[in-house]
Structures are given as C-alpha cells and as structure tokens.
Design a protein around this nucleic acid. Structure first.
Lengths: 346, 346
DNA sequence: ACGATAATCGGTACCGTTAACGAAGTCAAT
DNA sequence: ATTGACTTCGTTAACGGTACCGATTATCGT
C-alpha cells in the first residue's frame, strides 16, 4: 500500500479510501489507484484491518454434526448468503457433546468472530451469558434454550409432532409409538406435539410406546433398529410410528422389514427432516420437512442485520411452519401413489 | 495485556511469552501471570498476532458441494484433526462451477489463510500457479489436475473403475454400461479403469453404453434416472451398470424399478462412495468405498506437516486403495446375503 | 473580491501483539 | 576476582492498516 502511494504520489490514506469505496476521493485519483491495484494484484491485509476496525468478517457456525444432511444444508445456505456480503464461515462440530461445544465456542470467542451461529446441545444458559458478556452477537438455530431470550431460527417443533401424529391418526392408526431424540428443545417439543395430537383425538399416551434415547453413542440408524426391536416386543404392537428424525426412521424400517413386518400395512412410519434420499429408501419415507435451507438463509439474514446496525437490535425469533410430505411408509387404503401431496426436493 | 503487565509489575513481553509457553520465563512469574489471565478470562487478540506473525491459524476448504456426504465427511474429519493443533476451517462451496471456484479461492487468498485444501472442478492449472506465487501452500483432494505437481490425497480412481467393472464381470454380466461423471480427473480415470477391466476380460467397449454428463444442471438423482432411461432403450439392453457415484446410482435404480426392471436380476448395479445410507435403499447398493474419512485425515496431516516445517516440503501424494462393498444390487446366483464382504460404516 | 461551502486529500496516532536483541542477575568453575 | 554460561526479563521497532481531524483547493453566490 505504501508502495502504491509512493508510485502514484498520493498518501496511503487515499489508497485506503479507494479500496473501501469511501466517497471523498476524486474520480481520476480513484481510477489511477484501482489501475495500479489491479496491476499488482494487490489485496489488503485483512488481519491488519481487523486489528484496527475490530471486525473479522468471519462468522462461526457450531453444529452437532456436519455430516447430518440437515446441518450440512444449513451450513451451505448460510455460507452462500453470508459470502455475498463478504463474510465467511468457520465451521466446527460439537459431536453432540456439551463439553466439546463449550470448548469450541471458547475457541471461536477467542478469535473474536463477528457473530456466532449455534445449534446447541447444551441444556444450561450460563455459557450464553458469557458470550453476551463478550459482546459477541449470536443466533441460535434449530434448538432453543429455556430462559434465554436470543435470536432464534427454527421450525415449530410442537407442530412437527402434531402434524406427524395427526397424520398417522388420520390414516387409521390406533396405537402410535414415538422414538424420541436427545434432551434438546427439539426432541422435547416434538414429543409434546405428539402427546397433544393424541390428546385431541382422545387417545391415551402409553409410556411403553415412547422409546427414549439409548445410552451409548452408537450410530443413529442402529438406535432406530434397536428401538424398533423393543416396539415389536410389545403386546398390543403399535401400528404407527413417529420418529424424531429420518436416520432413526431408516434404522427402524430396516429392522422391521428384516423381521417380516410390512410397512405401512403393519406399521406406518413418519420421520422428520425430509432428507433428499427419503424417496429412494426400501420403503419411501414419509417425513416432516423442516425447511433447513430457509433456516440457514434466515439465520444469515439476521446475522447481517445485526452486523449492519450499530446498536444491537432486539432479539428476533423466526419460527417456520413444518410441512408434511407423504410417501409410501404412511400410505394406506385407496390412495396408492401420493403424488398429490408429495413434493420432490429438486 | 498491558493491564496485566502493569498489575503484576512485569512487561507485556513476559506476558506474551507465558501465553505462548516460551521457555525463558521464571516459574513463579509464569504462575502469577496464568493466575491473573484466568482471573480475567483473558484471550489474546488473534488478529494482532496474525498481523505480526503472518499466520492466521486458518485453513480454507473449497469443495464443489458441502451437501454431498463425501465432501461433508472430508470436511468433518479435516476439521477434527486440524482443531487439535489449534487450526480452524473456513469452508466454501464452488457449486461445481470453475468460475465460482476461482472467486472463492481469490477471496480466501486475500484472507491470507495458512493453507488451502481444494477439491477443484477446474481443468486448467493457471489459477494454481497464482496460488503458488502468493506462497500459500495448498493440498488437492479427490481431484488431481494434469501437469500440476502438488500435494494430493485421494483414491486410485482407475482402480475404482477396474474394481467395479471387474466385479460386474465376475458375477456374469456380459454387457456393462457406465454412467460417467463430469470432466474431472476422477470421472476420467474411473472411465479409464472401466475400459481397462473390459479389455482384460476381452470385452468390447461399446460407446452407447457410456452415458455422459447431461447438459443442464439438474439434480444428480434425476441425471441418474435420465441415464437409465437411455440405457433401457438400447437394443441389447445392458445387464450391468457402473455409476460414477451413488446419487447417480440411486436415480438409476429408482427409474429401473419404476419401469419393471429387476435389480440385480435384469441389471446389476455398482456405485461409488459407499454412502452411509446405501444399505437402506430400495435395493441396497453395492458401492466402492473411497475412504473419505481417511482422505480428510491425510490432508490434515500433510497440512500440519507443511505448517510445521519452515521450508516448504516437496509435494506429497497419497493414493488410497478403493474397496468394494457388495450389497444386493450386484448379488446374483447362490450368494444370497453378502454379509461376508459387506462392511457396515458404523 | 470576499467568505462560505463542498470536495479532496493527508498527518498523526494508534490497534494489540511479537521478533530480535540486549541487559541484568545468578552461579559455578577457573 | 575474573570469566563465562545460563536464566530471566525488558527495550525498541515494527506488522499493515484505519479513525479522527485538520489542511488544501475548487466552486460559487453575493
């Protein structure tokens, strides 16, 4: 920069202004500067700029698992939108472990990122108060924490539970089971929605039909299979099943089919996530769409809004309405091919 | 930092040394500093450190698609290993578009990341010479470029093609088709391996059996379906199919099944990628495992090696041997359940 | 011709950290 | 006592930018 200034007979300040598109510099000078900059393929040192402006143009993303298509899609749409405004994404995975998540967040905090976007697997809010003390803005996605008024983007998880369960009731299921997820707001609320739907249909909640998290961190699909094993052992065997997510449902389907159970005739199944391979499974899987792409985009929008405004805006909450996608795993009776409601995810 | 120095009656340099665990500071002083640092929950400003050291402790990753489980797994294992050494990952997606890839790389270059890790969809090397001129080390993954001697980690793609094709030959296929991928080294070499296997079995390469990329950027699964449609139109219909990747295979399987074709009886299929849901598909899919996790880990290892050594080490190339996983889509004759060779990806 | 206003440009002072080297103190051996 | 080697700590000078404000020139109405 100093070199360019010397070459052109202007000061570094002017160069700096041109590079940042500030108004107070003459057209001719501006053009000369740009020309020389292009000629040298010069790029300003972001670290130096960060040092003085206090901004890194970096946004951190903390998710439980990058491999899960739901979070991968959030990461993708997020980075797409942020990039258009010059922000980049630093990703980090908590492996669904609250301690790892804390370490990761501490690391990212030390890097003084401009914003953090977090799908938290923690159940306490203390860590988030620490974040606030450091004045780092953050946006929660997918999972909310009780007693924390923060920016949030996610689906209405009670509606998810209601939608899935209601659908199973509608197609005639009498004994509906639920494989629930871990102790996060998402799982708790979907369970709540499940219970609400049963209550509205004047059906009883049977404890044995609710399969909780298995201890041990085995793979999700295996957990689904194990849960289905338990369900098939029950005396009045369930004839409907709502799974916390699609990988669980996949495991459950596999186990059932391998043991001679017919889907959906013997047991109808609805998952959640609407992953892009749901329609290619052994039994195409009905699922609840969570609009993962939209979640990423909205989180990005909020992030940019925070970064643009000088004073921190008051927390914003975006609750998306889930959508039922019917496929064969929950089609019964006359309707043979559910093309009517089924929506492809092209 | 200045404050801590003042409080403790030492100089900032000493603080700096303690924070970086340099040897030349007394035990007592060291402890006093740590105590105060913990007390204030102080973290050094990475931007300032970067400015003077010239290192950002940031590694960039450029992949064609973060949603593809293959690249997601690379990203995940990569970030896991790097994190242990204090490096973080900036991700960016090129959407399989060479121009976007160039922009992304330019952006990352401007940020002066310590290393770039790239799964490139470009076909020319000029951009990489520019990277070298900026003295930013980089590691290629999955895809190699002709005429470029660079660090590389990936599978032996000719072996992939040979392995898949050879397997189809072994189970008795006489007319083996191939749905190839885009114009990258990966696709070209897998095609090459396919031809090699045919040649060794004294079988002819039939042009019509090789389905090339369809124009238009439709979704991969649809491309697979379209390719299968073309194949089923051929007069001597193929009885074996090797697909460039698993999503293509999924599309092909779906189309075939929907049109009354039996798999593997009428046409046996082998994909590539060994995605974790391959065993839950309508027809469990035989696939070639690319060791994506290992690719990420090795790329991380090379990266750290570069970053550790003062002089740039000479380019290293890690070629992984692919592994065939047999599932129902390519099981014929006596063998009913392929548990023998099948390997789960728990 | 004058001052006022606006458009351009630059000087100075930092941002928070580390590199490189030198100074001071300690201790044992000569 | 002198020397030398180690250990421990600090001085000075950047690193590459930007914020803040002041200085200079051009334009213009009266």
């Amino acid at each position: 920069m100093k070199d360019i200034a010397r070459d052109l007979g202007v000061s570094v300040i002017t160069i700096s202004k041109v590079l940042r598109n500030l108004p107070d510099v003459g057209d001719e000078t501006r053009e000369r500067v740009w020309a020389r900059v292009r000629e040298l393929d010069y790029h300003p040192n972001l670290a130096a700029r960060s040092l003085v402006t206090g901004r890194t143009y970096l946004v951190g993303l903390v998710v439980p698992d990058l491999l899960h298509p739901f979070f991968a899609e959030i990461a993708k749409s997020l980075s797409e939108v942020l990039r258009r405004s010059g922000y980049y994404l630093i990703v980090s995975s908590s492996e669904e472990d609250p301690d790892i998540e804390e370490q990761e967040i501490n690391q990212l905090l030390a890097r003084r990122l401009d914003t953090l976007i977090i799908a938290s697997c923690r159940s306490t809010v203390d860590l988030f108060f620490r974040i606030e003390k450091q004045k780092t803005p953050y946006v929660l996605v997918d999972r909310i924490l009780p007693g924390l008024s923060a920016n949030f983007v996610g689906v209405d998880d009670e509606a998810v539970g209601r939608l899935a369960t209601r659908h199973l009731i509608d197609i005639g299921c009498k004994r509906i089971a639920h494989i629930r997820g871990p102790e996060t707001s998402t799982a708790i609320r979907r369970l709540e929605g499940y219970k609400q739907a049963l209550a509205r249909a004047r059906m009883k909640v049977v404890d044995g039909y609710i399969i909780a998290e298995h201890k041990g961190d085995v793979e999700t699909k295996q957990r689904g299979a194990e849960a289905m094993r338990q369900l098939l052992l029950l005396k009045p065997r369930p004839d409907g099943l709502f799974c916390f997510n699609d990988p669980l449902a996949m495991g459950a389907i596999n186990y059932a089919l391998d043991h001679g159970i017919r889907i959906p005739e013997d047991i109808a199944i609805v998952g959640c996530g609407n992953l892009h391979y749901d329609d290619s499974l052994r039994v195409p899987l009905s699922s609840i769409d969570q609009h993962s792409r939209t979640i990423g985009e909205e989180a990005a929008r909020i992030t940019l809004a925070i970064l643009k405004s000088k004073v921190p805006p008051r927390p914003e909450s975006v609750i998306l309405q889930p959508e039922l996608i019917v496929r064969r795993s929950s089609q019964r009776g006359t309707k043979r091919n559910g093309a009517s409601k089924a929506r492809s995810r092209a």
